[in-house]
């Protein structure tokens, strides 16, 4: 079955170079990708993830607000009883990785992460899901 991924920008961060490149890489790897567009709320991301029946949610945050916004997305998904794994890419300092993992994030990708790793990680996750 084809892996379906929602890639999302949450909050006020308009930097979309990364998410555009990731979306295209995932599509090139044969996945179906839904991109929310910019400036989404945690609730709208969760709602779209459920409505689109995706296997994985990928959040892209470069503003540094990940510790505030990511847990809100996870809460919103739980509120909809959706057990969809969430991965986060962006400027995530090492010291924040554990905090995000504790909040329920399945994987994080920092600056310079390899596209092949991202694709492989998401592929593996959708199989497990």
């Amino acid at each position: 079955m084809t892996t379906r991924v929602l890639v999302a920008k949450v909050g006020l961060d308009g930097h979309d170079r990364g998410i555009n490149v990731i979306a295209r890489s995932l599509r090139d790897a044969g996945m179906e990708v839904v991109y929310t567009g910019l400036f989404q709320t945690p609730e709208s991301v969760a709602r779209t993830a459920v409505d689109e029946d995706v296997d994985v949610v990928g959040l892209s945050i470069l503003s540094g607000a990940h510790l505030t916004l990511v847990p809100l997305v996870i809460d919103a998904l739980r509120g909809l009883d959706a057990a969809i794994p969430v991965v986060v890419g962006g400027i995530i300092p090492q010291e924040d990785v554990a905090t995000l993992r504790d909040a329920g994030v399945a994987a994080t990708f920092g600056p310079g992460a390899s596209m092949d790793d991202i694709v492989a990680t998401i592929e593996a996750m959708s199989g497990a899901h």
């Binding site: 909050g11 006020l12 961060d13 709320t41 503003s63 540094g64 607000a65 510790l67 505030t68």
Partner: peptide, 10 residues
């Protein structure tokens, strides 16, 4: 509320 986490950050 939309500014949560972003005030004074960037």
């Amino acid at each position: 509320v939309r500014a949560l986490g972003e005030v004074g950050r960037c």
